[in-house]
Design a protein around this nucleic acid. Sequence first.
RNA 1: GCUCCCAUCGUCUAGCCCGGUCUAGGACAUCGCCUUUUCACGGCGGUAACAGGGGUUCGAAUCCCCUUGGGAGUACCA
Length: 479
Amino acid sequence: MTVRVRFAPSPTGYLHIGGARTALYNYLYAKATGGTFILRIEDTDLERSKSEYETLQIDDLKWLGIFHDEGPDKPGKFGPYRQSERLEIYMKYANLLIEQGKAYYDFCTEEELEAMKEKAAAEGRDPIYQGKWKDPAFHAEALQKIAAGEKPAIRFRAPKKAYTLNDKVKGSVTYPEGMVGDFVIVRSNGLPVYNYCCVVDDMLMEITHVIRGEDHLNNTVRQLMIYEALNSKIPEFAHVSLLIGHDRQKLSKRHGATSVNLYRNEHYLPEAMCNYLCLLGWSHPEERDIFNKEDLFKVFSLDRFSAHAAMYDLEKLKWVNGEHLKKMSTIDLITLIEKEPETEFFSKQSQDWKNACVELLKKYASFVTDFPKLVNELILNENPEMTDPLKEIMAWETTPKILSFIKEKVDSVESEFVTEAELNSWMESVKKDMGVKGKPLFMGVRAALTGHDHGPDLKFLIPLTPVTILRNRVHQLSK
RNA sequence: GCUCCCAUCGUCUAGCCCGGUCUAGGACAUCGCCUUUUCACGGCGGUAACAGGGGUUCGAAUCCCCUUGGGAGUACCA
């Protein structure tokens, strides 16, 4: 049996981090088993669904490197892949269920339903439908009403028994008898409802494994009932724990950046994003933290999920991104950096300069966007800020001497950049002629040339800095 | 309220299914030290967790029960 899995988002907004994670798990499972990954659009809620969001979500999925084998934009023999285009299919099965007495027409008004719910709440139990239409004796009357143009909802007759699910991550889950009452599968406006469509589609699309968020765990009992009524095979289920924010609440917009496109705009590396998302609730068999998709294709399985919710934490994502950044080739990094805004100076430099610059700075960068920032701060900044540590260095008795010596040297340089050898010779001179060594020497020179009390290795940093800028700094500090 | 799910360092987790090898391992963060004649690199190390209580057992992080805490569902949303 070949594996068929699906990701079924509703196009009601941007692709959410949590959605991306479930999509990723489905994709990885398909890849790991040689199966098929299907994208299905769940757009039966006409009011909230927008087709732009479908496009945007597919776009974000592609950016993450999560590619589907079948979907609305990639028709296969199980299509169509938008629920809004499958309405006749749902009606066909709904009618079948009615014929078999497994579902019935319901003409109850909102008020009647509301009254039932209140009564149930007062009695401290879950609301269970108790309208008269449940009674098969009213079927004929229902047909008459329909003939007269009235629009009923179709309600599924929930069997009175307990259900047990053997979930891949939660283990054995028991839904007691009476947990849910008869529920609507087709609204009175003719549109079918999620729990019903989902089952019909998963059945028809021959889905073998349903990997989705834990928020669906309670829905599953309804779905189990429908599978049974439809005499369908029941897929395996894996209910992955939810992502939570710092307040331990389900991750939502108020937790800040929860849409994938936000990270995409900030130029996070998609591989890093997937790496981190995968780590949230799943562990590598060798306890590795950094991996790419190809690694995962070999080892991904459904038995390494943790059962509890995971907190979405930017700190670790930052580290993962930095690790992926360091693994990239210099040439690829340069290409990415040049796509960033405010990289005119960087782009104008020679290939050797760029290579040296990236080699030096990538140790300190976590994000691609850090490069322009670092270049600005470390190389292009012409106005030394008199911080306390800098003041302290300037106050040392050796510093003014170093400063005036360096000023003289920098003024006499005619080339665009100082070489490492030149810098070394200056240091040698200070050491020999002034008898300054160790910390006063290095810190003095560093302060004079960079205006900072700390930073990357001088012998690498200074040759990357234009002499004109060096000169400006030294002159300002000499005042 | 009711039903379901969950519970190991601040965070992500390993271990749990198949009790002993766990004075509980790793990673992020944090702190310290070392090295680098400077430094935001690097190296080494530290702090830090089995929610509580009962059982079962020679032995429990691991199995069972209760409590507490957290989450989800409870729609003619998905």
